[in-house]
Amino acid sequence: MTATIIWTIAAITILGIVLAVVLYLVANKFKVEEDPRIDEVEKVMPGANCGGCGFAGCRAFAQSCVEAANLDNNYCPVGGNEVMKKVAAVLGLEVHEKAPMVAVVRCNGTCANRPVVNDYDGLKSCKVKAALYSGDTGCFYGCLGCGDCVSACQFGAISMDPETGLPVVDEEKCTACGACVKACPKKIIELRNKGPKNRRVFVSCVNMEKGAAARKACSSACIGCGKCAKACPFDAITVEHNVAYIDFNKCRLCRKCVVECPTGAIHDVNFPAPAPKPDKQAPKPAAKPVTPASAPAAAASPQTEASSAVKPVKPADARPAAKPEVEKKEE
């Protein structure tokens, strides 16, 4: 009995030792030589494998960083400057800071602004819809509302607002990876500078139709009138194909264009107070769901600038107050 036990223990021990040696030899034989820095870089990556950097995943990005002579062409939009600094530290390279970006939905075709004329009855996909027809409203350029951007977002930063039928970007969750930009068949979503204290001014429309047609399709469309371009002291606004565009690198957030826009197509977000109105009462867009829906609309107390920079809660701007003005104007 004892002999059997001893033999068993001995046999198994010997077997274990032999196999360990075999494993060691095999592991040595098939060892892949890899720069150890790749692992180190990968460790500091966000690990989302979103592909926002243009590489297949975080490891591919790390490998590219290690191989690159400098980091000018590599940027992780998800991790931003912080991660890039860490990467640079690992590799002993320098990194130039890039302004943080955020996805911006450039369509203000809410249910209220755009009368619905058709009823879609196919696969719920913007791609399918875009290939089929102009969309349910008279606007050929606007948001189709099927949420391809929502499903493209890996970070849960985009959701559809059931009230407006438009996608809403959660600025905190958005990493500017650009997946939604690629997913949108109408090219509505754009990556823009997040701006100081998350303040941005942008044209929330891409309708290239002539003024009257654009206006007919959507009450807050850009009609390409060019008033904003004239008002801009920094030459940041260009009007091409009947639609204005604000170059965020030139824009200084003075908001002269916002008050000038006759349809309320230019949006300013995260400003503590409404844009100054120089002489006349300027209309403002009827609905601007730019901040997350979780932001309490009743947050009437003005946020301090420091807190709004960290958490962009919808400031107590005068939007609700401006609402009647728009309606008055339209009547």
Binding site: V117, N118, D119, Y120, D121, V128, L132, Y133
Partner: peptide, 8 residues
């Protein structure tokens, strides 16, 4: 009032 639109 609203025309139904769907792919074939």
């Amino acid at each position: 009032n609203k025309l139904l639109v769907s792919p074939s």
